[in-house]
Design a protein around this nucleic acid. Structure first.
Lengths: 331, 331
DNA sequence: TTGTACGCGTTATCAC
DNA sequence: GTGATAACGCGTACAA
């Protein structure tokens, strides 16, 4: 591995000049600059991150805490986060929670802290992470993937609530008056926001409030919830907090002899790539996960650099109407 | 940020002794060891990765190159890779390809190389990555997620072929004689292996070989392939290289008026969590993505440390029979 | 068993 | 505009 000194020698300058070239120092004769560039090219020189991190005491690394494995939304966002971070000169380190235990959470956060991350994006149970971070007494800038500029972390995202409203109001507009919500995993800010959005829409429409079913984001849960709900039949529509649960739900209904959307309407959330392809095609709320990821990075960078300009980061939710929700049967 | 010297001062030892404690040096009086440990605890000391990397000139980082966004398999594997790497004292840096372009590939590899990765796990178009790596003249140990111990990277994985055989033979056993394969994206080792496994099974059974449809892993492609194939109707079953395409395919058939599995049988590959929940439930080949990820790390570590013990890394594929494949209609 | 000196590759500071 | 020198925090070699 060639170092700065090797480049310097080849270019007949001091290693300091090489450093200046790398860091785009203004006062540099173009000629020497070019000579250094050539030498770097010739030697296939790559700056040593470790040395730089050591001397600047900045890791230029941001951490991402993942709470679910293999799901479409989070992993798409992570890809976008990586891209955005890379553009901003940052490296991304992700840590996946091994399971739902508090120990796993501590371990994951610890792992990230060991990388000397300068900021954290949380895509995981929000409140617990917050607790762990304050327990560890680390004053680390951090954002949730779903947080909005200006919102405190303890608040629930207005955007998410809006999306949930869209879904719920769609069902109401179709004529449904008995609507159940199957919520996401507890302690997730998204789950909470969507539930609130749902409840607000219900109460605004003066409808009866069915107690939400507290889920866990998985298709399995959706399936069992569907079978369970099918026994009650005191509702005509369900709003599930994500598409995966919605699909499980439809399966459960089907197994219980309930036809979707004739007997029950279902609306999901996320608009995963499979949503249009399942049967019946899933009506859902589209989220732009890439945009969410990019925005999370922008927000975090703002927070890290103190420049809370709260640049206009709009990520719109959009209702996507497909076949899984229809007007209730006239009774 | 406290350093070794701070810990040393508090424990009344030299910073060297602290280093020894951290690296679990054998010759250390338990008493001093404990004193140091206490001091570390008291100061909330964390070793500085950068400094360590600098002096040892080892980054203890492995790279992961991702070629698809948000898919279940890859992202589950990455989680497992991270876990396994962490256990082995390694950090994982992932790089997602921005798009399918060669530039994106070069950029991603470059990004990883900048992190001074010591090894690479490839979950992306295999051949092209290999080309880029040799162009860059980096003698970097690397494995593909799907590679088997002992297999060269240019070979196609026998395990994958086996899985594809399982799927194809299942269809043959059901009585199908005209079977089409919808392959994965070109240049992916998995796509190649599955196609070969399919072709082998077909030729072993002395069936007519339909030219495979070259796909791209996406549900969208599956859908259009389904509509297109529906016009031909010179087959009674399809083996899709992954579940997502299989689900798109079923949608396409449905739209074209072809009932699955009555008119056409479909078998997928992966056993994604939604596979049992779609309609009809998808017959598929189960892959243990977590195990694949763990094995990739084990293999890579072997290669990096030269200890090619090729420890027994078995990851079995398993056919999961569900409703999407049935015997062909008697004609 | 423990301590001292040195260097890893870079940036910051101050000369020239 | 460019160069010398001193850190940064840690591990290795050697000395005690």
């Amino acid at each position: 591995m060639p170092s700065m000194r090797d480049v310097a020698r080849l270019a007949n300058v001091s290693h300091q000049t090489v450093s200046r070239v790398i860091n785009e120092h203004p006062s540099l004769r173009p000629e020497t600059r070019q000579r250094v560039l050539d030498a770097m090219e010739a030697l296939q020189y790559r700056p040593n991150r470790a040395a730089r991190a050591l001397v600047t005491s900045r890791s230029r690394t941001i951490g991402v805490l993942l709470g679910t494995r293999g799901e479409y939304g989070p992993s798409s966002s992570v890809a976008a986060i990586e891209e955005a971070a890379r553009e901003a000169g940052y490296l991304v380190n992700t840590a996946n929670l091994a399971d739902g235990s508090p120990e796993a959470l501590v371990e994951a956060v610890d792992h990230l802290l060991e990388q000397a991350i300068e900021g954290l994006v949380v895509i995981a149970p929000q409140v617990r992470v917050f607790d762990v971070l304050s327990d560890l007494r680390v004053g680390l800038p951090f954002v949730s993937l779903q947080s909005e500029p200006g919102e405190l972390r303890t608040e629930t995202s207005t955007h998410q609530m809006h999306g949930a409203r869209l879904a719920t109001e769609h069902l109401i507009t179709l004529g449904h008056r008995e609507i159940v919500h199957v919520a996401g995993a507890q302690d997730w800010i998204e789950a909470d926001s969507r539930m609130r959005g749902f409840l607000d829409a219900i109460s605004d429409a003066d409808l009866r409030t069915h107690p939400p079913v507290l889920g866990d984001w998985t298709a399995e849960f959706g399936y069992y919830a569907g079978r369970e709900l099918a026994r009650r039949r005191d509702f005509t529509a369900v709003f599930a907090a994500n598409d995966v649960m919605a699909i499980g739900l439809m399966h459960g209904f089907r197994d219980a002899g309930l036809d979707v959307p004739r007997a029950v309407s279902v609306v999901g959330f996320d608009d995963i790539p499979l949503a249009p392809h399942v049967w019946p095609p899933l009506t859902t709320v589209h989220q732009d996960f890439q945009a969410l990821g990019r925005r999370a990075v922008a927000l975090l960078l703002d927070e890290m650099h103190g420049t809370s300009e709260a640049s206009e980061h709009e990520v719109a939710h959009r209702l996507v109407v497909r076949a899984s929700a229809a007007p209730p049967l006239a009774t």
